[in-house]
């Protein structure tokens, strides 16, 4: 089922509630079973994200390089919580727990592309570029 859910999210940016009965029928499962799977995994969103998605690492190696202050600062400047999207729909902020970039922390994935040794300036640049494109 995960490959199907991944494909849905790839196409629509989320796994919409309306998709659950369709997946259930296709796989000959109950809706409750499909719903249970969708909600178990952190990756699947119920609503589409902004035009860009920034996954900021919150795990220990990044913490050791100031990730907590970094994400807190960004959220303050944008007025966002985790999983929030900016009002103009340009950027969604999601937490990640380790991206395998722990030797060049703090790290993030921007639309799937890795970023490292982040600071406030680099994040502000991400925000500005997200607004433009």
């Amino acid at each position: 089922m995960l490959p199907i859910l991944h494909a849905l999210q790839e196409r629509f940016g989320c796994v919409p509630h309306e998709a659950v009965p369709l997946v259930a029928e296709a796989l000959n499962l109950s809706r409750a079973e499909v719903h249970g799977v969708v909600t178990f995994y952190h990756d699947y969103r119920a609503t589409p994200p902004g035009r860009h998605v920034l996954k900021l690492c919150r795990a220990e190696a990044c913490q050791a390089m100031g990730a907590e202050a970094l994400s807190a600062g960004l959220m303050r400047r944008l007025g966002l919580e985790w999983h929030g999207t900016t009002a103009d729909g340009s950027l969604t902020l999601e937490p990640a727990f380790c991206l395998g970039l722990c030797a060049c922390a703090p790290a993030a994935l921007l639309d799937g592309e890795p970023m490292a040794q982040l600071d406030d300036l680099a994040l502000d640049r991400v925000v500005a570029e997200a607004q433009r494109a």
Partner: peptide
């Protein structure tokens, strides 16, 4: 190759097997 969906517990081997079978990673 199969790709998980953001659940740390799916690194535990039996949870991983459930996930591979398309179930909740319990």
């Amino acid at each position: 190759v199969r790709v998980g969906a953001g659940a740390y517990i799916c690194g535990e081997e039996t949870s991983l097997l459930n996930s591979l079978e398309g179930k909740r990673g319990v």
